[in-house]
Design a protein around this nucleic acid. Structure first.
Lengths: 252, 252
DNA sequence: GCTGACGTACTTGTATGGTAGCCGACCGAC
DNA sequence: GTCGGTCGGCTACCATACAAGTACGTCAGC
């Protein structure tokens, strides 16, 4: 449970309320703590987090720009359902950028870079042994980010990260089958090995198939959790929740 | 000149004030009407556009996310100077995405797609004859967008567009040398021809060199207009304008 | 003349009030 | 029973007020 008081406690470190709220909400959405389709009200969030509506509202606008929430004026704001189109688009963006970066990284990567990547791989194996899914997710993110940094295009990572968010929401449901983790780690290792060898084409191919495996997972998830997805391109009428909120939310 | 009254006049079409302000400001920044380094005050803009601070502020937050303005809390908001790092990053993103899309477009493109692209080329030549730079910019944008649409990844265009904005600011100063326009159009035509022929690798190479030509232009601009660029990675102390604002802005 | 403290005017950040608009339940007419 | 109008409550949108903080001009002291 995200505490209501904890928000302002961590405020000292330069970041303002808006950025904190933004991070909290983003984390909740990508972590599926807030389910696709559920309503997120400015008022409720402001009350829960103990801040005014302004920073909450501004955060929601940013999240809307990222495609993580849909704002319907005068109707409500809803965590966006996972859309076929968005997932495909995110996959295309991710593959194009990560592979392009990797191709440039081959040749640039020094022994130090390779060593640092391998440290991450070891940590991932440790997370696997402990079935620490959350830890693995973070390490996976860091691995791919580091891979782009090696190419010298670290500043392009936020774009990948934003696209990745669309995919990650679905993957949260996928990975509980922990058998996958070792497979993914193996693919990571293969990419690093080929990068170290300087084999450009095979490294590219390895990373590409790795990313596509992740992509195909999303489709499997769709079969199991159709309620998180949206068939329509234009998700009209998100339908206001008919049940009384106060009943389901408890005291205040 | 963007009129103060015109903002709310066009409001009927579904878009709210925030979106209108966002479009106006973005257009002014990319069009260099607002110069890199200049201050953009929430209050001044709100007064000029005849709206309150709220939608202006929200627009600035979005523009900050796009890297077009830098917000310094309690100090001011400034149109971001063109940063070496951002330009390189934008070029990388653009090249990776557009070329990846083109490679997928080869084979998918039907005669109708090619014909539509050639219509745009003809329009570009017309703009060239009339030295209509603004028109050419729009047609160029449309051409590249259409090219991605052919690949089926139209939804990835906004990402390219956002990256492109960083480059376009500099290009506005470049293109006045109209000799360039016919050269660029020729490259466009070459890409379309190779796409129609289905020559994947050469089409890719043609588009890539086209994009790099654009990129190299930016470097030339830097020599001529260094004041628009920022050498430092962290542009500290943008320095508040010492001159009295009321004098330079006229009546109210 | 030079230096340093102070005050003012500006900035963005946050909180709150009022408005237009939409949904959905209720209720009367048929 | 079914349909149509109405009304209450909710929403996001916009406007405004207050707070926290920074830069810069001014002026006292040296």
């Amino acid at each position: 449970m995200a505490s209501a008081e904890g928000l302002h406690a961590a405020r000292s470190r330069g970041r303002n309320t808006r950025q904190l709220v933004h991070e909290v909400l983003r984390s909740r959405i990508v972590g599926l703590e807030l389910e696709p389709g559920s309503a997120v009200s400015e008022n409720d969030l402001a009350a829960e987090l103990g801040v005014s509506r302004t920073p909450v509202r501004e955060s929601l606008i940013l999240l809307s720009d990222e495609g993580l929430v849909d704002i319907y004026p005068q109707m409500g704001t809803f965590v966006s359902r996972i859309r076929e189109r968005d997932v495909a688009s995110a996959q295309f963006i991710r593959e194009a950028l990560e592979c392009a970066a990797l191709r440039e990284a081959v040749g640039k990567a020094g022994p130090r870079d390779v060593a640092e990547l391998r440290v991450l791989l070891t940590a991932q194996e440790e997370a696997d042994r402990q079935s620490d899914m959350e830890g693995f997710f973070q390490l996976d993110e860091e691995f791919h980010a580091r891979l782009m940094a090696v190419s010298g295009h670290a500043s392009a990572w936020p774009v990948v990260s934003q696209a990745k968010a669309q995919l990650d929401r679905a993957r949260r449901l996928s990975l509980p089958m922990t058998q996958q983790m070792s497979l993914l780690i193996g693919q990571h290792r293969e990419v690093v090995d080929l990068l170290a060898e300087g084999d450009l084409d095979r490294a590219d191919a390895a990373l590409r198939s790795h990313l596509r495996l992740v992509f195909s997972d999303v489709e499997k998830i769709r079969a199991k959790h159709p309620e998180l997805f949206s068939d329509e391109d234009a998700p009209l009428r998100p339908r206001r929740d008919s049940a009384r909120r106060t009943a389901s939310r408890g005291d205040r």
